[in-house]
C-alpha cells in the first residue's frame, strides 16, 4: 500500500510574524515542517512498524524552500518525496486538486493531512481532497490503528470525542496528541540525502487559485499590561479585584 503524508512548510511557531507590502514576510525567518504534519509522518511510520506493508511518500506543494521540510520528512523515515514547485499561493480547494491527482497517479490508499495549517489556519485540505477522490475522511484524529484494511481510531467531534471505523482508502487529518513525532537521527539524516524527491511543476496540474489574498495585517490589540507584584498577596489581590471591577468593569 502507498501512504501519502502531506507536508506544509510554515513559519516556526516561535518566530514573530512580520508583515511587508501587505503580505507576511518569510524571507530570513526560520521555516519548519508544520507540526501537524509531523504527526502524519509519525503515524504513517508507526502503521508500518506495526506490520502494515507500506511505501510512505511525502508530498509538498510550495516554494523551492519547501524542499527542506520534505527532507525532514525523509529523515524521519518517509521513503521518497514529491515536490510540486510553485510560488503561487494556492487555497485549499485548488490545492486539493493537485493532491488528489498525485494520489491517483501514485495509487495511494491512505493520506495523512494536518488538522489545521499553522500559516493559513485552514482546516479544509483533507476534506476537500477526500471529496475529490470520493473517499471518506476522519478528522482531528487522536488515536489510530489499522486492522487489515480497516482504520479504527478516535477523533474529536463537536461535543466530546468519538470512536470510529472506516475502510481504506481514506483521508486522515491529524492533531496534537495523536503521537509523539520522532526526531530524525544523524544516520537517518545522512540516509535521507540519497532519497528521491521528484520535482513537478504546477502547470502539469492545470489548477488556478480560487481565492485572492488582498492583504494582511497583524492584529495588535493594545494591552494595558498592568502587572502587579504579588509579594504581598492580599494587597495585590485586592487591587486586582478593584481594577477588574471599577476600571475594566468585567466582574460584578
Amino acid at each position: 500500500m502507498r501512504i501519502l503524508t502531506l507536508i506544509r512548510q510554515v513559519l516556526d511557531a516561535e518566530e514573530s510574524v512580520r508583515v511587508r507590502n501587505g503580505a507576511v514576510e518569510l524571507e530570513g525567518s526560520k521555516l519548519v515542517m508544520d507540526t501537524m504534519d509531523e504527526y502524519g509522518v509519525e503515524e504513517a511510520l508507526r502503521l508500518r512498524e506495526h506490520g502494515a506493508e507500506a511505501e510512505i511518500i511525502a508530498v509538498a506543494v510550495g516554494t523551492a524552500r519547501a524542499e527542506e521540510a520534505l527532507r525532514t520528512a525523509l529523515a524521519m523515515g518517509a521513503d521518497r518525496g514529491i515536490h510540486v514547485v510553485t510560488d503561487v499561493a494556492l487555497d485549499v480547494i485548488a490545492l486539493s486538486a493537485v493532491v488528489a491527482q498525485i494520489a491517483k497517479t501514485e495509487q495511494a490508499e491512505l493520506i495523512f493531512c494536518g488538522g489545521q495549517q499553522a500559516d493559513w489556519d485552514s482546516q479544509g485540505l483533507g476534506a476537500a481532497t477526500a471529496e475529490r477522490l470520493q473517499w471518506p475522511q476522519a478528522t482531528w484524529t487522536s488515536a489510530l490503528e489499522l486492522n487489515g484494511t480497516m482504520l479504527v481510531g478516535k477523533h474529536e467531534a463537536d461535543e466530546g470525542s468519538e470512536s470510529f471505523e472506516v475502510a481504506l482508502p481514506a483521508v486522515v487529518t491529524t492533531q496534537q496528541g495523536l503521537n509523539e513525532p520522532r526526531y530524525p537521527t544523524l544516520p537517518n539524516i545522512m540516509k535521507s540525502k540519497k532519497k528521491e524527491i521528484r520535482k513537478e511543476t504546477l502547470e502539469g496540474f492545470s489548477v488556478a487559485p480560487k481565492l485572492k489574498i488582498s492583504g494582511v495585517e497583524i492584529q495588535v490589540k493594545e494591552r494595558l499590561k498592568k502587572i502587579l507584584d504579588g509579594k504581598d498577596a492580599a494587597a495585590a489581590a485586592a487591587q486586582l479585584v478593584k481594577m477588574l471591577r471599577e476600571e475594566a468593569g468585567v466582574i460584578g
Partner: peptide, 21 residues
C-alpha cells in the same frame, strides 16, 4: 505580554487571596 492585568506570584498564594478579595 498580552495581559491587561496581572499578578506576578505563586498561584497557591495569589488565587486564594483573589477569592478572598
Amino acid at each position: 505580554k498580552i495581559a491587561d492585568y496581572g499578578i506576578v506570584g505563586d498561584v497557591k498564594e495569589i488565587v486564594p487571596a483573589v477569592i478572598q478579595a
